[in-house]
Design a protein around this nucleic acid. Structure first.
Lengths: 232, 232
DNA sequence: GTCTATATGACGATAGAC
DNA sequence: GTCTATCGTCATATAGAC
């Protein structure tokens, strides 16, 4: 308790710095060898110390995974929030908005495959993330839900649509894109991925279902345009 | 060569039987401990032999994973073909067909989580399935494509739709459902899974996009029904 | 307080006796 | 075909140097 009351203590800062260094090496190894391929010995080797020294900073390998899990969600949350601030709040229709945010999420995931495996799959046998590590994931969920609510208030989503279901279904789609891309063609860049490039088409499908269109002729018009889009 | 020419040899049969026993124990362990939690020592322990004896049947742990990968796809392929034979070939509209086959695929995956992790994710660091092990997966892909072609020929899918894209996008959606269900709520049964129960709604979205509807009033009618479906 | 040295038991894998 | 013995590596734990 008393030690936590002095966050700017020199030793404390140095300790936090070392912890970050451990996490950096861990992520680099996971990117090379896969999440399950992470070994404390390899971290120590790259840092020039002995494996037991790592136990000064993390009580177990699971605790290390927990810190990585939390940092991954924090990084993804920050990336999505940065993107949200950059975006004009009312640019384009529902399909355009879904596409942009879905692409941003999927891009980060595909470009950080080690984090993505840890965050979206369960590759470590006994590992269950702690409540604290889960918190940034919950915050991202809440952020996303608030954005869906805004879309509905602005009239881009049908007023009778259940936002919980809309968010869940769009999450399923993006999770599918990331999963398939990482499992089947992890070396493809995001912009040319055979799965990631399907996001706009999938967003169109979504918008067709949930967009607020009271004019039947407008529906027919959009329907005609979609025929071309599905050919791309 | 000569030994392979006598497939009914007693020793050969006994050997194949032992191999199946090894795979059975391996899957059971993976279901308990996760794919990465599989250990040769545990297999040997359950079989009442010593770990090195397993090397008579599999030259490495990766070879064991390869056999499991192949057997998983064979089981899933057989399940889907069995289902295809049971189904009347022209029962219902596109949404109904997509729902039924998607549910069958997702149900098998959720009810065989150990296989599913191995088939759909890449949880084992250096493991790459061999071409031979991949073959049943290709056969299932071809089966599915042929069914989509039949649907298009029967007029259930727009004639101008690119079937490759339709199949790929539906695969993404089902992969997303399975991924999310297994990663976030693996203990929920298929029929009450918070993700698996979204398949009908997702299929409706798909059908809305790709179904062949030349009558605008029919479109409007379906559109009206959908509002209720999205509330479930 | 921080790290090293050392030890334990599990793992995948190999060699060779029977 | 199964065994014992062994190797190198792993996560983990403890004792103690500085």
């Amino acid at each position: 308790m008393a030690s936590e009351a002095v966050p700017l203590d020199r030793r404390h800062r140095r300790r936090l710095q070392t912890i970050q260094e451990v996490l950096d090496h861990a992520i680099e190894i996971m990117a090379d060898e896969g999440v399950a391929g992470l070994s404390l010995g390899e971290i120590a080797r790259r840092m020039g110390i002995r494996p037991p020294s790592l136990y000064v900073y993390f009580p177990s390998k699971h605790a290390l995974y927990d810190a990585l899990f939390q940092r991954g969600w924090v990084l993804l949350l920050e990336d999505m929030r940065r993107y949200g601030r950059e975006q004009p709040p009312d640019d384009g229709d529902l399909a355009a908005v879904l596409t942009r945010f879905g692409q941003r999420f999927a891009r980060w995931s595909v470009e950080h495959p080690a984090y993505a495996q840890l965050l979206f799959w369960r590759p470590v046998p006994g590992f269950q993330p702690s409540d604290e590590a889960y918190q940034p994931a919950v915050r991202l969920y809440d952020d996303t839900f608030a954005q869906f609510r805004t879309l509905q208030e602005r009239g881009l989503i049908r007023p009778d649509a259940d936002l919980t279901l809309v968010q869940q279904q769009w999450t399923i789609v993006i999770a599918g894109v990331v999963s398939q891309q990482l499992a089947n063609a992890p070396e493809e860049p995001f912009d040319r991925g055979r799965f990631t490039t399907q996001i706009p088409a999938l967003a169109l499908m979504f918008a067709d279902h949930y967009a607020d269109r009271r004019d039947t002729r407008a529906t027919t018009f959009t329907r005609g345009r979609r025929r071309n889009a599905s050919k791309g």
